[in-house]
């Protein structure tokens, strides 16, 4: 009696289960593929939307007006702000630069400012907040913390639109999670029903295996392995379809949307998500099969 031989026997029986699985097995695989494809498509859209949103979010900086005198004190403050969490970048703007910008911003009217030597602008720091994958930084809180720095007079932050993007991202993440759970449930139910059919179809065979001394484990493992294979193959199939769809869509999207937003590239999901979806298929396949095997194998 050797474990290796036992395992290889079970694998061979699992292979037989896969080959004799027929229509239910194929259907379960297709459902898994569809699930992986749907989740993958959604994730791809989300990834790209997030990228666009984050450029919007990051381009909207917080502006700090300082009441310090001299470059040294202003630089010291800039360094402190740059070290704060949620801050991606902090840039110092000298009063001269601020004045120049103000002139440019005002256009023709700005010329009125020319030569007005008496007008002095304060030192200004432009803070770019991080806009990470988990959602937008809470700008209110960041603004509050920045305001508490000694030497900061006023903080201007255009919060409204960022908040809206932020809320939308949260909504999309939430909807994605809901969709994911729903698809997972459907896949489990389908796989477990396919396994149930296989068990019923092979009831006689299972009974005979037990009569000649097979343990429950020996009978169950091949069926669970078949579920695993079905889950992995299904997910892989769905992802291949996704990759093909992405490849053919990417060029179209590039042409259609480039110009307005610079060059727009439809990015694929990050590699870990591809791997996670295959693992997800495997887990659902095993879970679905195990569920049925436990409930219906009491021969």
């Amino acid at each position: 009696m050797s474990t290796v031989a036992l395992v290889s026997s079970m694998v061979r029986h699992g292979g037989r289960s896969v080959r004799s699985g027929g229509l239910p097995f194929f259907f379960a695989m297709l459902m898994t593929a569809l699930g992986a494809f749907s989740i993958g498509s959604y994730a791809t859209l989300l990834v790209n939307f997030q990228r666009v949103a984050s450029t919007v979010g990051e381009s909207v900086a917080l502006v700090l007006f300082l009441n310090v005198e001299g470059a040294v004190a202003a630089e010291e403050l800039r360094a402190r702000a740059a070290l704060m969490p949620d801050v991606r970048e902090a840039a110092l703007i000298t009063p001269e630069q601020a004045l120049a910008r103000a002139r440019r911003g005002l256009g023709d009217a700005g010329r009125a400012l020319e030569g007005s030597a008496g007008l002095t602008m304060p030192w200004v720091i432009e803070v770019t907040p991080r806009f990470d994958l988990a959602g937008a930084t809470d700008r209110e809180a960041l603004a509050k913390r920045l305001r508490e720095l000694p030497g900061v007079d006023e903080v201007m932050h255009p919060g409204g639109e960022v908040k809206r993007v932020d809320a939308l991202m949260r909504l999309l993440h939430g909807a994605g999670a809901f969709l994911g759970v729903l698809i997972a449930l459907v896949v489990i139910v389908v796989v477990s029903n396919a396994t149930k059919l296989t068990v019923l179809q092979r009831r006689e065979e299972i009974a005979i295996m037990k009569l000649v001394g097979a343990t429950d484990l020996f009978v169950q493992t091949p069926l669970v392995l078949a579920g695993l294979v079905q889950g992995v193959l299904g997910a892989a199939l769905g992802l291949v379809a996704l990759a093909l769809a992405h490849a053919s869509l990417a060029s179209v999207v590039k042409v259609a949307l480039s110009g307005a937003l610079g060059t727009f590239v439809l990015e694929p999901m990050p590699p870990w998500l591809w791997a996670a979806l295959v693992c997800g298929g495997a887990v659902l396949g095993v879970a679905g099969a195990a569920l049925s095997v436990r409930r219906f194998l009491r021969v």
């Binding site: 290889s8 026997s9 097979a214 020996f218």
Partner: peptide, 11 residues
């Protein structure tokens, strides 16, 4: 073969 397989004998 089944009767031996379930006992974990070598193929």
């Amino acid at each position: 073969a089944l009767a031996l397989e379930v006992q974990g004998r070598r193929f």
